[in-house]
């Protein structure tokens, strides 16, 4: 019996079991890439569809519009944002299920439950606060708060999955704070945070863990 290679196998088993039982490893980089692409499509729809090609939220953006037009614009933004969220979530579930099946991992484990709880607490808080502000016409901090609450959710959930998620969260928080200083360029920061950062981190994770 080659005891050294046996000890080596022991250590490999220990490492693998520790990792699999404490981290959700079914998260796919493709989820990030697709979430980013969908965010950019959503922004393009807003710019071309109902912002008439404009991209800046300048002061008095809505002056001169009838209250009916403002209401229409608000619901268009709202529906666009909800659709982006639904499609991004659907893709991330789809790719996670696919990855867990191909790796023979289980999706619903104690660690994936903990991941979801830790993700959802900041996300729901923001998900309730932001529509409240939105329908009170407090527009200025909508985009910073979206980025910040999403970043906090990722930082919180990052402990239970790949480390990159934690750093993506930090990047979103920083993007959100900077965007609060420049509210006029809100949509640029939104595209950067939800579009480009997702795609960049998705590519990093995909290349690191899935090729």
């Amino acid at each position: 019996m080659d005891s050294k290679s046996n000890y080596f196998e022991d250590l490999k088993v220990i490492k693998k079991v520790m990792e699999e039982s404490s981290r959700f490893l079914s998260l796919s980089g493709l989820s990030g890439i697709f979430a980013g692409i969908i965010a950019l499509i959503g922004a393009a729809i807003a710019i071309l569809g109902f912002m008439n090609g404009g991209i800046l939220f300048v002061d008095g953006y809505t002056t001169g519009m009838s209250s009916h037009d403002i209401a229409v614009l608000k619901s268009e933004f709202f529906i666009d944002a909800i659709l982006v969220l639904i499609f991004a979530l659907a893709f991330s579930f789809f790719f996670s299920i696919r990855k867990s099946a191909s790796k023979g991992l289980k999706m619903w484990t104690p660690v994936s439950r903990r991941l979801l709880i830790n993700l959802m607490i900041p996300l729901f808080t923001g998900g309730i606060l932001i529509p409240i502000l939105y329908f009170q016409d407090q527009w200025q901090f909508i985009i910073p708060l979206m980025l910040i609450f999403y970043g906090l959710a990722l930082v919180n959930a990052g402990k239970f999955t790949y480390n990159e998620v934690f750093y993506l969260g930090l990047s979103e928080i920083i993007t959100g704070l900077v965007s609060a200083v420049f509210p006029v360029y809100g949509l640029f920061f939104w595209c950067f945070g939800f579009g480009l950062l997702h795609i960049a981190y998705g590519l990093i994770m995909y290349r690191k863990y899935e090729i």
Binding site: V13, I14, S21, S22, P110, V111
Partner: peptide, 11 residues
Amino acid sequence: RLGIMSVLMVN
């Protein structure tokens, strides 16, 4: 046994 201990060490 190694597996059991590994799981319980991190949970």
